[in-house]
Nucleic acid binder design. Structure first.
Lengths: 342, 342
DNA sequence: CCCTTGTGGAACTTTTTTCGTCCCACTGGC
DNA sequence: GCCAGTGGGACGAAAAAAGTTCCACAAGGG
């Protein structure tokens, strides 16, 4: 199979671009359907006319359907899209990239989505889709009861959106308390949504951000509800978490100028589940809250990290080095940038 | 692999044409090198300008090299060409065709070369090449001594041209005596050439065409040389033979009008090793000469039939039905036409 | 030794295709 | 009943592809 791809790259290299272009269109429509020509062209950064030529073709091929509401992907198109993602990955040598990351970062499995989150919103959704598939596979894996811990963030939200399962014995919990500015991206919210789509149970952890250490301790010691949830969280066998840029996450948490300056001075570039780490994988700061810590990750059966976008490359690398990851789902832009830093 | 091809056919169908066009060019140059733009365009039926665009590309890709003598295929191009033939075969669904013929005609193996002998001389050469590869594989197959019987014809000549081996224990013989107008395409000549390129021994059979049965018998009975050769021929374990259209072969052998009319009346359409058969596989006429007969084919370990071109489809089918074939090497045009007749 | 033939490279024109742009009739939600 | 957004259509500009012709040169044959 790889042989065929190399063969084609040699003798019909122009094919790659065309195929990827059509793949991108199909993928975008798949997420935004129904959508019109002009809006679609805008999102993909193509001129209307060029896009039109392609969608006309895709229509003729029976992959897209047109209505007065806009374009949508046909069933056949969706089948094709699924197969195509693997193929595009190989075509762009992402398989090799994945292998490289697996070996150099000691991760069990790396999945790279073609594209760049920073430039195409749809890529983040695709990361979510891929993560959703992986999660469902893990849950379907025989064992009766699972405890799934999730962090917050838009990528996690994208995953939750793409999950659909029937796992009444599974419990979904937030990995840590608090954190998150928008309600829809808080870990608690995501746990709820995910549990809903999984038909699973869920528990929430109500511990606000920025409480002092003493108050936190007293809550943990005295509140039996919180205590129970924390115990469940600590028993999680699957963790799905996002990774963020240290500075952006710190701002989002409303860190004071002083603390922020310290953070930067300590070289913090990445953040995951409330811990900040530098590019060498050293944890330099931990937010004051309850739930999982980086050290706990080793005990968890499957740790799944999600993040994409060239801007997050450093952050991703720092978190991976600081923790134990079983599965990483990222995008092409981040992956290529990470490789440069190795 | 087949999946990938279907995928591509669906989403980038224009690829096929382009790839096949470049493949044809590469293949043609490979046989005719060094050759110029204009001559090449003529052979391929392309305009000079179109061909130029392609060869310029192939040059940039490092697959073709240019000199003042003309174009030639680079080593890399030859490697690619070898891999490509399998790929093109699958791309054009020739694998399915091959399978269909294997099952319906009870042949061990069918190899179909893309194209049409009648329109492109190079396809015949490719049939020769493919047959040469197969023959070399058979000869390399452990066993010490082989006796290879060959018929005459341009296709066999093409095969002999493409053989290169070192088989000093092998003996090459003509399948039958006589027959053939041009010296270079007589079975005797081909046996000699083939033996030379194989570094093998050879024996010739000097029995002219159109001798009466009585004279033939007396030659066979009395001439110890002829007798010995015939015995070797009968012991052949590999036979490579061409197939021809009955009428054309009859004319070439100089059959009288009367006999010719009988032949046609009997429904003869195909000919191989001097026997004529009708479309249902019944042998209707046998030329008066020494060597292998259709009935002997069952005893031979590997019988390899070579023929291509739409015009020969009927002939090929008739011969296959009349005899026992282990391997058939033909071209796309003939194969597609044969399938229609099943 | 020259002459013919075929070579790759280049230039120019014509044709075809692609692309940018605007308009239109229509539909579904508000 | 408006209005934003839809697909479809049309037309000219721009670009790419293809047809045509020429040139300098090198090789091989008489």
């Amino acid at each position: 199979m790889d042989n065929i791809i190399n063969l084609q790259k040699k003798i019909v290299p122009e094919l790659s671009d065309l195929l990827v272009e059509r793949y991108r269109i199909l993928r975008q429509v798949s997420h935004d359907a129904p959508i019109g020509r002009r809006a679609l062209a805008g999102e993909l950064g193509l001129s209307e006319r060029v896009l039109r030529a392609q969608v006309d073709f895709l229509k003729t091929s029976g992959l897209l359907s047109f209505s007065s509401l806009g374009m949508a992907v046909t069933d056949e198109g969706n089948d094709l899209l699924r197969d195509l993602s693997d193929y595009v990955r190989k075509l762009q040598d992402l398989s090799k990239l994945e292998k490289l990351l697996v070996e150099n970062l000691h991760i069990g499995r790396v999945v790279i989505i073609p594209g760049d989150c920073d430039k195409e919103e749809v890529v983040k959704k695709e990361i979510g889709r891929a993560a959703a598939r992986i999660l469902l596979q893990l849950l379907a894996d025989g064992k009766k009861q699972h405890v799934v811990a999730v962090s917050g963030g838009t990528t996690l939200a994208a995953m939750a959106e793409n999950v659909r399962g029937n796992e009444p014995n599974t419990i979904v919990v937030p990995a840590r308390g608090g954190l998150g500015d928008k309600v829809e991206n808080k870990a608690n919210t995501i746990a709820t949504v995910l549990a809903g789509r999984l038909k699973a149970k869920y528990r929430q952890l109500y511990v606000p951000d920025s409480v002092s250490g003493e108050i936190l301790n007293s809550i943990l010691a005295e509140d039996p509800g919180v205590k129970a949830v924390v115990e469940i969280i600590k028993s999680a066998d699957i963790l799905v978490h996002g990774m963020g840029q240290a500075k952006i996450m710190a701002e989002r948490r409303g860190l004071e100028n002083k603390a922020m300056a310290d953070l930067i001075a300590d070289g913090a570039v990445g953040e995951a589940i409330g811990q900040y780490c530098d590019i060498n994988g050293k944890v330099v700061y931990v937010t004051n809250n309850a739930g999982l810590m980086m050290n706990d990750l080793k005990r968890i059966n499957k740790v799944i990290g999600l993040a994409g976008g060239k801007s997050k490359a450093q952050a991703i690398l720092s978190v991976i080095r600081a923790s134990h990851q079983d599965i990483l789902v990222t995008d092409e832009a981040a992956a290529r940038d990470i490789v440069k830093m190795l």
